[in-house]
Design a protein around this nucleic acid. Structure first.
Lengths: 144, 144
DNA sequence: TTATAAATTTGTAATGATTACAAACTACAA
DNA sequence: TTGTAGTTTGTAATCATTACAAATTTATAA
C-alpha cells in the first residue's frame, strides 16, 4: 500500500511533508527523535522545517498513526509501528529495542486492561537496563 | 522509622536537604515534579536550591530509593513509593493515579519479565487517558 | 579540638528540546 | 481564476534540565 493511502486511512491528508515523515518512520525502526528525522529528511527536502516535523508527528500521534515514546527524559522518540509491543531502552548506548508479544506474551494482555471507570487510551510498557551488547563491552573492559 | 534511617538503608547519607526531599516524597503521593517540590520546600528551607533537588532526586533514583516517571513529555515526575505499581495519567487534568496489583494483577508479573540476555533494571507500565472526574466534567458540558 | 581534605550545596549561566507565532505558501472548491 | 481554509516555514520565546565554580558543610586525621 502506498504511504499516501496508508495515512489517509487515519484521516490524515497526505501532503508531501507528511508522507516523507511517515515513510521515514515505516522504513526506520529505530524509534527516531525529531532531530534524527530532521537530519535525514532535510537532505531530500531542503525546505522541510523542524516545526513541520513536530506538527506532523503530533498529528500522527493524535490520529493513532504513530506512537510517542516517553521512555527517557532527554527527548521524545517516535514509532511508526502501532501494533502491540513493548520497548527496552539501553542506558548505555541509548538503543531502543522492540519487544513483541511472541517474546513476551504479557503484552497481549495490555490492550484489555481496565482501571476503574477511567478511560484508558494508551498503554506503554517500558523497560530500561543494559543491553546484551553493552554488557559484553563492559566485560571485555574488565578483563583487560 | 525515621526518614534519616530510611534513606540510610539505601546507602544515602541523610543530609538535611535529602531528608526534606524524601519526607516530601513520602508524604505527598502526588508524583511531584522538581518544581512542585521546590515550591513547597523552599518555604521551610529558604536556602534550598533547585539544583540540589535535581541532584538529590537523581541520587535517590540511582540508589533505588525513588522512581522517576517518564510518563509525559513536559517534565519528569518522581515517586517515593518503590513498591510494584503502575501509573495512569489523565491527559486533561494531569493527575497521575497509582495502580496497585490488587486492582491490576498483571503488575505482579512485571518484576519477573525477561528479554533475551539483556539486563533489565527497571520496568514501568504507563497508562494515559481521561480520568473519571474529567469525563464527568465533559459530559456536564455537553448536556448544557 | 584543629587543620585539612572530601563531599555537598548553591546560584548563575548555558544548553537544548519544544512551542508560539506570524508571514508565506499550497490545496481545493466555487 | 480567485478566495479561503489549511499548512508550512523560520525565528523567537519558553522552560526544564544541566554545567560549573564558588561557598559551605561534613568527614577525617593529627
Amino acid at each position: 500500500m502506498r504511504v499516501e493511502d496508508y495515512i489517509l486511512k487515519f484521516g490524515i491528508k497526505p501532503l508531501v511533508q507528511r508522507v516523507a515523515v511517515m515513510k521515514y518512520l515505516l522504513t526506520h525502526k529505530t524509534h527516531p527523535t525529531v532531530e534524527e528525522i530532521y537530519e535525514s529528511l532535510h537532505k531530500e527536502i531542503s525546505t522541510l522545517s523542524k516545526t513541520t516535523i513536530y506538527n506532523t508527528l503530533k498529528l500522527f500521534v493524535e490520529n493513532g498513526a504513530a506512537l510517542q515514546l516517553n521512555i527517557e527524559d532527554k527527548c521524545v522518540h517516535f514509532d511508526g509501528d502501532i501494533s502491540a509491543h513493548a520497548h527496552f531502552m539501553c542506558q548505555h548506548c541509548g538503543m531502543i529495542y522492540d519487544i513483541f508479544p511472541s517474546k513476551m506474551p504479557i503484552i497481549n494482555e495490555l490492550s484489555t486492561l481496565e482501571f476503574g471507570s477511567h478511560n484508558i487510551q494508551n498503554v506503554q510498557l517500558n523497560l530500561t537496563g543494559v543491553c546484551e551488547k553493552c554488557m559484553k563491552k563492559q566485560k571485555n573492559k574488565e578483563t583487560k
